[in-house]
Amino acid sequence: MTEIHAYEGAPEAEFRDYVALLKPRVMSLVVFTAFVGLWVAPGDMHPFVAFCAVLFIALGGGASGALNMWYDADIDAVMRRTRSRPVPSGRVTGGEALGLGLVLSGLSVMMLGLAANWFAAGLLAFTIFFYAVIYTIWLKRWTPQNIVIGGAAGAFPPIIGWACATGGVGIEPLLMFALIFFWTPPHFWALALFMKEDYHNAGVPMLTVTHGRPATRRHIFAYTLVLAPFAIWLGLTSVGGPIYLAVAIVANILFIHGGWRILRRDEQAAVADGYRVEKQVFRLSLYYLFVHFLALLVQGWAGAW
């Protein structure tokens, strides 16, 4: 039986398509790290204000996700992983994504300023600007170091969380920033190693394309080495403690070992077993970040140094 539609082209958007514009999975990372930053910070916030603060930080992150989807629709349409996103699939127009992103950016910054303080709100505004303009519009299509610099945007939430509670920054949130910042490149390059042709087809200058896979493997290993001291250092500050240090030491040994295994493989071995090691290290990198922040949370609850 033939189906007859009263309209042509892609179906109208449902509510969940607008939710998808906010990149809920990235938002969950933002919620978690911002909450940890807020939780371990000195100074007490009313639980409801803290809840609202984390919510508005997440909303700001979602807004920058929508702006990213507006600008990157052409890239998303080419890559298999992102082809079914709302804008490239035609369910939501680019203009709607732009509008939603701008409105939610303004709203989240304003509400964070009213709920917490204007320093935190300013940081949130800068983060949105950094992700949407500096990363998405400028660097992503221009340099293979895009991942490195873009990682800074994802590294801001714990600083914002800390700023909500204290009204300022300190060495602890800066080290949390460093933890996410130096974690991002090995995480995404491991993904780029086994996603293969996608970024190439989309014309995004990924390191795997511009400098080759052996260079990418070296970079991954180098970043796991740079990352480790910052993770340990964080354990020696006022938010650290024995639980965090133990977790950090184990996680970093595993991650460096993973980076080493990636470094030692050549492309033939990787193709032969379907990028098994690269996929393992990618999964390990997800756990790596999660357990660090979980350990900070537990340490904060159990009492830091």
Partner: peptide, 23 residues
């Protein structure tokens, strides 16, 4: 599809009002 958008937006607005009131 339209109902899902309308109901969704309605719930979001109610939740936002509750949030501002709570704050």
């Amino acid at each position: 599809r339209r109902r899902s958008r309308n109901v969704g937006l309605g719930l979001v607005l109610v939740a936002f009002a509750a949030l501002v009131f709570g704050l």
